[in-house]
Simulated scan of single mutants.
Amino acid sequence: MAGTDIELRHLRAFASVARHRSFSRAAEELLITQPALSRTIAQLENRLDVQLLDRSSRHVELTDTGAQFLEHTERALADVDTALAVVRHRATLRLGFGWLLPDPWAQRTVSRFEEHTGASVTLTRTDDPVQALRQHTVDVALVRGDAEVPTGMRAVRLYDEPRVAVCSEHSQLTRFPHLDWADVPYWPLVVNTVSGTTGPWSWPAERRPAEIIETANYDEWLETVAANRGIGIVPEVAQRRTKHPALRFVPLVDAPPSPVSLVHLPGTQRSLIRRFLEAALRSTPE
């Protein structure tokens, strides 16, 4: 009998493609590859023995049958999600971060996720969010910077943060109206080697800062800069959120933006993570 072996993954895949009118965006939302998504949709159409999507145009469109099927699919998925919410209120997703969750993104994401799923979010501050993810002490890690994603993990890039320079109130840099990115290597640079976004890796080998002062976490980095051991480079959220009487912030010109991403392990808390990523992407700055 046609349709008896259809699974929820088929329906969610179809609904996502229909909503986005795009296989690539739907694949990103569902945390699967585009070929895998195409196979899932093909399985659904074969098992129903109907064509649901028209792929002949530049954009994916619904056939008349597909449009009718989508109405029933969305109702069915809504009923399933409602049933799951009854038990999800006991579920918790652990979000790991190294320092200063970006605002208002974090507040919007957590609020939207908890409202739509009934689950709760536990915020876990850790010096190394990726290591915490590897040790399964968090489910999702907020990561700043453009370091490579470790093998076996997946990352979803949210948006980019502008950077700003920071120095001690006694630093010569306070006399400058701004600092050019190209001139940063001429200053001693204080680097958070664990979760920092700017370090010697941020420049080509022949143009890297001559003097690097290494620290192991944000607090050490902060106090080292305040002690006038060197300058630091951070996302501008630090300027708004860090209150330290010995620090001064200086505009940074022509600096590359600092990417913000969510990293997770596939196969762990998959449904909750998918819903959290949906909330996170919808909360990103425009």
Score class of each variant (00 low, 15 high):
T4M: 01
I6V: 15
H10F: 07
A13F: 07
R21S: 09
S22R: 06
R25Y: 11
E28R: 13
P35A: 06
A36Q: 14
I41S: 06
L48Y: 07
L53V: 12
D54Q: 09
S57V: 13
V60A: 10
G66C: 09
G66Q: 09
G66V: 08
F69P: 00
F69S: 04
L70K: 06
L70W: 10
R75A: 09
A76S: 12
A83C: 05
V86E: 15
R88G: 01
H89L: 05
A91C: 02
T92I: 12
G98H: 08
W105R: 11
V110D: 02
S120D: 11
S120V: 11
L123R: 15
T124E: 09
R125A: 13
T126V: 15
D128A: 12
L133A: 02
H136T: 12
T137C: 00
A141R: 09
V143T: 05
A147E: 13
A147H: 10
T151K: 08
T151E: 14
G152H: 11
D160C: 06
P162L: 07
S168Y: 00
Q172G: 03
T174W: 00
P177I: 14
D183Y: 10
D183W: 11
L189H: 03
V194S: 05
W201N: 08
A205P: 04
P209M: 03
E211A: 03
E211R: 15
I213Y: 04
T224Y: 04
A226M: 05
V234M: 07
E236M: 04
R241P: 01
K243W: 14
H244T: 01
P245A: 02
A246G: 04
P251M: 02
V253G: 00
A255F: 03
P259R: 00
L262E: 11
P266G: 04
G267C: 01
Q269H: 15
R270D: 14
R275K: 12
F276D: 08
A279F: 02
A279H: 03
A280N: 12
R282E: 15
S283H: 03
T284S: 13
E286Y: 05
